[in-house]
Amino acid sequence: MDRSHRHDDLELNLVLRGQLDYLFGGERISIPTGHLALFWGATPHRLIQSPDDDPVDSCWLHIPLSTVLHWGLAARDLNDVLQGTPVIVPIAAAGHDVESMFMCWLRELEDEDGATTVLIEAHALVRRLLGYHRRSTEHDSTMVLARSGASESMQRVTAMAQFIMAHFREPITTADVAEAAHLNTHYAMSLFRRSVGTTLGEYLTRCRVSEAQRLLVTTTLSASEIAHASGFGSQSSFYAHFVKLCDVSPGEYRARNC
């Protein structure tokens, strides 16, 4: 994955060997061997695994957000899905041979009837994983954050991404972001683009649009209220950026997903 990207699907990752390392929102996050990760892809994310790392054997499935919203998940479970960070649980939480299930899905997705079966089984699996996560987080988090092995430059990039994620609702500038990482503005912009594959401004906009998507499908706030809550300076700016990134207007997006 050469650059950060985003999508409107719920993504399910299964890691059978090795480790997947993501720059996800403002965090560097690792999905270790024998774990499943569940997340909404609207948060900008990028694989940052080094070519020198051990080989990774993994599987993934994308489920349209509109489908997930019609599953009628409990409010807490839906919040866990849309919170902006992956839910990571051990494979044992699936309760069965999930690797074999993924292999069956690969074959079944080749025809329409098979796709229906995949969605039914994926629905059950997502509910099971979220239930495990809910029970386990009453005591401790199952998420593994891998920060210590990051290079100094990646630590600076992570600091910038974290600052944006924490302050994107505010009228911040590239200079503010650079200062958070103790860098001059020009170098910060160059480092971020080289490492993440997008500019600071584009990343900031994507975070704001992702928040607007979440608010559109989980609240009854008006478009102007959502524009303000997501950090856009005006409703016209919100509309233009939203249409550019989502290919539909905010109103159409809400109608399709609610």
Results as ranks from 00 to 15, higher is better:
S210A: 14
W105Q: 06
A150R: 14
Q83E: 08
S195Y: 11
G197W: 13
L20I: 10
R208E: 07
M154K: 01
T173R: 15
S66N: 10
A166H: 13
F242K: 04
Q19W: 03
Y132E: 03
A115R: 15
P64M: 01
V87W: 09
F24P: 02
L16A: 13
E121F: 08
L20T: 11
T33H: 06
P64V: 03
F163Q: 04
A150I: 01
R3C: 00
A75M: 11
Y253D: 03
V144F: 12
Y203F: 15
R256E: 11
D54V: 08
E112G: 05
N257C: 08
V243M: 11
G95N: 03
R135P: 01
Y253H: 04
T185Y: 07
P90M: 04
L106G: 11
T205S: 10
R194K: 13
H228F: 08
T199Q: 11
I120R: 15
E179W: 12
Q19S: 12
E202L: 07
I120M: 13
P32V: 08
F39K: 02
R17Q: 15
Q83D: 07
R46P: 03
L130F: 05
V126C: 02
E110C: 10
H96I: 06
A122S: 10
S224K: 07
Q49M: 08
E27C: 08
